[in-house]
Amino acid sequence: MAAETHPGTPEPNHARRFTALWVISSLIATPLVIFLLGPSLPPGNGSEQASGHVTDNTVLLAMATPVLLLVVIYLIYASIFFRQPKGGVLEGPAVRGDSRVQTAWVVITSVLVLSLAAYGTVRLLADNGAGSGSGPKPLTVPKGPKLPVQVIAQQWAFTYRYPTYGGVETTHLELPDNEMVELHVTSIDVIHSFWAYKLGVKADANPGVDNIAFVKPTHEQSFEVRCSELCGIWHGYMFDKGHVVSPAAFETWIHEQQTKFAPATKVLPPYSKTYSPEPTRRAE
């Protein structure tokens, strides 16, 4: 306030101008983000969980937009209006703080952050882990019938086992539409991670651990399964196509698999939450 660049022109009310700029641009940008960008956000509507993530991503983006605008507009504003004239040696005002602004900032950011955490917690519990690996004993379990499917990760392929269909194991993942699926992800060697991107599911496969994730596909589709935890030389090649089909088509398919893989099913170990095949440690 004491430092006047040009004695003739009065200093504009920066606080009011900047606040107006920020509020107006936030009021414009935030609805745009919610209604224009929101619906097209990943991972799409492949499953209830994926649709939930789209909502979460939209909420987080909507909260992030004003914060982003606050700092970016501030930086632009400051670099236009708070410049040192070329070759100038002007000093700024010797202000060392403002307890009201500081208190307000602490309170507002804390409230924002706490509400974010509360929102995340509610969403996580309400959606039974929101498609993420929730350990061997998930805190919340969806009601109603569930189709258990075991995902066995190994270096470097996923195979899938259907315990309710005679423990048949298959090379591809096929799921019935509109049914709650209980994925049991485990590994027989190193850490992998099962990621069905379009279904919004990700669960690490740890050796000796039964990691459960729930997913309910909402329409027929094909989706890509990828490994998302570095697991060795073919980590990048550990992908596979899966399909969501109608329940009737699923029944047909699984019976085909039972016939086709009858020789292999005979020699499989009995279905179990985890497996520790030989060699358990170092090979001889």
């Binding site: 270096q155 470097w156 027989i188 060795g232 060699p279 440690r281 170092r282 090979a283 001889e284």
Partner: peptide
């Protein structure tokens, strides 16, 4: 396309999958 062996044949390595099993 990649191809590989799935038998834990790398002697001395954990799960038999190190060394020659992870070297092109």
């Amino acid at each position: 396309y990649r191809w590989q062996c799935f038998v834990p044949c790398a002697a001395g390595y954990i799960d038999g999958f190190g060394g020659p099993m992870q070297t092109l």
